[in-house]
Design a protein around this nucleic acid. Structure first.
Lengths: 156, 156
DNA sequence: TATTGTTATACTCTATAACTATA
DNA sequence: TATAGTTATAGAGTATAACAATA
């Protein structure tokens, strides 16, 4: 018999706190992005593009529709940080490759992200514990699909 | 003598994983919002407005500029979920108060957010540990200011 | 036929600057 | 003078639908 965890005060508290921390981490990331004159989405795209990645996969990583990635990559390409390279094995597919400037930018982004990160208020052993918990959540969880508002059930 | 943690592989790993989890949690939240026909920011505004809160404080909670809150609250008010109430003690200030429908919506939002949350792959004791870590990070960390791009130092 | 990426569209979010009204 | 909130603006993000090229 499984106790109903939805009414567990601990669950409520942890969800409220993850909401708060998620907001702060995002603000921290956006601040770092701004310091490099990147928009939040441009920075996230740079962050996850270590090796060549097709547009569709980037859309998944960014949790947004594929049609949005066109514009985001357009602006990164105009700025000389990324290039679209047609995949020779499947000419429909375009792989995104960082330029030298893109790699430098990505490194700076990550350096600055590490420099002042809120989670660094934890010491080594605590980070180890957090690492274990994150590993468990990430491997157990199936990444959610992109949010859709097609058939909402409002009731409010 | 403090070891330089920026080069600690554990720190890098944990930051990469928090980036991933943060993205998934946001996608989860946005999906729940969409199921109630709310935009992401409308849902976040509803989430943090349990008791009357002035516009400026809501802007801080949402990590965005105060000017944005006007439009977000406009749409929630048009929909009958919130009301602006002028503060009698300081007539410049407007407190945001949930309507009955707003309270129902907020409850549904939180119910659905708990129902399928990725962090629920953790069991009770693990949640306790996470709770402790979150408490420490949140109390040690000073919430970052809103990201500004006024004086960037690009170098890329 | 199905898939990858683009375009067109309409709306929301976003920060900045200038503004109103209160203090 | 300073603060709370609004308006105007321009740009970026957002999902949907329709489309082209390729498989």
């Amino acid at each position: 018999m499984d106790h109903d965890r939805a009414h567990d005060p601990l669950v409520r508290d942890v969800i409220r706190m993850t909401f708060e921390l998620t907001g702060r981490l995002r603000a921290h990331m956006d601040g770092v992005a701004a310091s490099l004159d990147l928009t939040p989405m441009q920075a996230r795209a740079l962050f996850v593009s270590h090796q060549p990645v097709p547009m569709g996969l980037l859309a998944e990583s960014l949790h947004c529709d594929a049609s949005n990635v066109t514009g985001i990559v357009d602006r990164l390409e105009e700025r000389g940080l990324m290039e679209r390279v047609v995949d020779p094995d499947d000419r429909r597919r375009k792989n995104l490759v960082l330029t030298a400037a893109g790699r430098r930018g990505s490194e700076q982004l990550k350096d600055r992200l590490r420099a002042d990160n809120p989670i660094l208020s934890l010491d080594g052993p605590e980070l180890e514990v957090l690492h274990g918990l994150l590993l468990q959540v990430l491997s157990a969880d199936v990444p959610p699909e992109m949010p859709r508002r097609t058939h909402p059930s409002p009731q409010i």
